[in-house]
């Protein structure tokens, strides 16, 4: 023990310990930062432009209305519009592919290779949770109540921490006057099975 104290008095050892502490701290900070940034997407899809063009959320994510998963669009769905944009396809003066915006070139590449765009889901729940979009849309919830105002976001970001406390709070608030509905909404078996 005595030898450890003597070692600790040395300048070099103190410096070494300080460096080690800084490395661990920055590693922790980096790991924390990694959990807070949106995932890297294959195409930097600008939501804001598309929402400003009055395109409905359900046009590209139609699953929200009829099934559990809202779905992410395939390359065909994107190309249905982008394949006929007059800006690039004007027969009088067609713009060559090399002069298109970079992200659209990527999309054209996926269409040419006929492979689906490997979008990375942003709003995810663990395997033991079964979230269903359909009853939420049927209950009259608007997309932005959970997903935030997409007209102010470019690439999709997580606007709301998805955890059980958040789910249950909303479920309780929406079933204050209906005991029958509350039984269903706070039942474990509604989401966990």
């Amino acid at each position: 023990m005595q030898r450890v104290f003597e070692l600790l008095k040395k300048k070099e050892i103190q410096l070494l310990l300080l460096i080690a502490f800084m490395v661990i701290l920055s590693g922790g900070a980096w790991a924390l930062y990694q959990t807070q940034i949106p995932p890297e997407q294959p195409i930097q899809f600008p939501h804001d432009i598309h929402v400003q063009l009055q395109i409905q959320c359900l046009y590209c994510h139609p699953g929200a209305q009829r099934q559990a998963s809202a779905g992410l669009p395939t390359q065909q769905k994107c190309w249905a519009c982008h394949g006929q944009l007059r800006k690039y396809w004007d027969p009088a003066a067609p713009v060559p592919l090399e002069q298109w915006p970079v992200e659209l070139q990527k999309l054209a590449g996926y269409v040419e290779r006929n492979e689906p765009i490997p979008w990375v889901p942003v709003y995810i729940v663990p395997d033991h949770v079964h979230f269903n979009h359909r009853p939420h849309i049927a209950a009259g919830f608007a997309c932005e109540q959970c997903h935030g105002d997409m007209s102010k976001q470019k690439v999709a970001e997580l606007q709301q921490t998805i955890n059980m406390g958040w789910c249950i709070t909303c479920h309780q608030q929406n079933s204050v006057n209906d005991p029958q509905k509350r039984i269903k909404l706070i039942d474990c078996g509604t989401c966990h099975y």
Binding site: P126, H128, I183, K184, D187, C188, G189, T190, H192, Y193
Partner: peptide
Amino acid sequence: TVHSQAEQINLQVYN
């Protein structure tokens, strides 16, 4: 292991 009030069955909450 809870009793589901809504479905009246016996549930195992895995998490």
